[in-house]
Structure formats: C-alpha cells, structure tokens
Simulated scan of single mutants.
Amino acid sequence: MPDLPRPEQPRPEAPSTDGPTTGATPDEAELARVATPATVRRAPRYGAFIVAGAVVGVLAGLVLAVATAGDSGVTGADGGVLPFLSGQNGVRWILALGLGVPGAFVGGALAVLADRRSTRRHGAGGR
C-alpha cells in the first residue's frame, strides 16, 4: 500500500518573545523554556544476568563432573529411591545444581556492579 501524503497541519501562532532568545527561532525558545534536560541511563537487566550466571554455573558443574568421572569409583546398580540420581548421574546433578546456584548469585552481583557503574557514570549517585 503506497504512503499517502499527509495533509498540511496549521502552524501554531508564534509565542511572544518577552525574554532574550539569543538568535533562536520562537519554537526553539519556547522549547528551551519548558523542556527539562534529561539523561538516558542504560540499566542492566537483572534477570538476564542471573540466568546467564546460573547457566554458566551449571555448565561448569557438568564439565567438572565429566572431567573428574574417570575412575572415581562411584557406581550404583540399584538406583535407590531416585534411580536417575544413581552413580555418575547423581554426581552430575549435584555438581550442576551446586554450581548453578552460586553462578546465579555471581550473575546478580555483576548486575548490581554494572548498575552502580552506570549510575556513577551519569552523575546520579544518590538517586
């Protein structure tokens, strides 16, 4: 569908120039009078940092479990109450969860540090 031309909008009347405008057009002078200066601060997404830290921790736990699995002597034939936790599977689960939780905390801490750094950079230290 082709773009249709927009109808011309009437221009508002020029505001009175009671004060000095320093060579600015009346629209710019009005904007400078009513506009509040603002800065854009890019805050980190905490959830993304926490999930990324947990994933890195779980992967580190799985790599550690595989690297140390050689002849560890951990075997289980019966499986007990939870058969998926028998033998090496139990070691993998425990290491994955055991390093995933601290990884999530480390990710959260990194998000807090990134947030403080961005706050300090923009000069809004006390909020």
Rank of each mutant, 00 (worst) to 15 (best):
L64G: 02
V55K: 01
P83G: 07
R6S: 15
T68C: 12
G126E: 12
L59R: 03
F105M: 10
H122R: 08
V55T: 05
T22N: 15
E30Q: 09
A29D: 04
R121H: 10
H122G: 08
V56M: 06
F105Y: 14
A54R: 02
A77N: 13
V74K: 09
P2C: 10
P83W: 08
T119P: 00
P15W: 06
A32T: 10
V55W: 01
V51Y: 03
I94V: 15
P26M: 03
T39R: 13
G123Q: 04
G53K: 00
A52C: 10
H122D: 12
E13P: 04
I94C: 14
A104M: 04
G90E: 06
T36M: 09
A29K: 01
P20R: 14
G98P: 00
A54N: 02
D78G: 14
N89E: 06
G108F: 03
G70P: 11
L31P: 00
R11M: 09
L110Y: 04
A96P: 01
L95A: 02
R11Y: 08
V55Q: 03
A14Q: 15
R45N: 15
G79Y: 05
E13A: 13
S72W: 14
Q88L: 14
A111V: 02
V56D: 00
L99C: 05
V34T: 11
G103H: 02
R117E: 07
A67D: 06
G125S: 11
G87W: 04
A111T: 01
A38W: 14
D115R: 11
A114N: 08
L31F: 08
V51I: 11
A77F: 14
P44A: 09
G47K: 02
T75D: 15
V106M: 08
V81A: 14
D18N: 06
V40D: 14
P5D: 13
G87F: 05
E8D: 11
I50F: 05
V66S: 09
V40W: 15
P7C: 08
P37N: 08
S72P: 07
A65L: 04
L62A: 05
G47C: 03
R116V: 08
V106P: 01
V58T: 05
R33E: 07
G123T: 03
V58Y: 04
S118T: 07
E28P: 01
R41T: 12
G100P: 04
T25R: 10
T68S: 14
V51R: 03
A32W: 13
D27A: 15
P83L: 07
Y46L: 12
L113R: 07
T25M: 11
S118I: 03
G80Q: 06
P37A: 09
A14Y: 11
H122N: 11
A65F: 04
S72F: 10
T75G: 12
R117P: 02
Y46W: 11
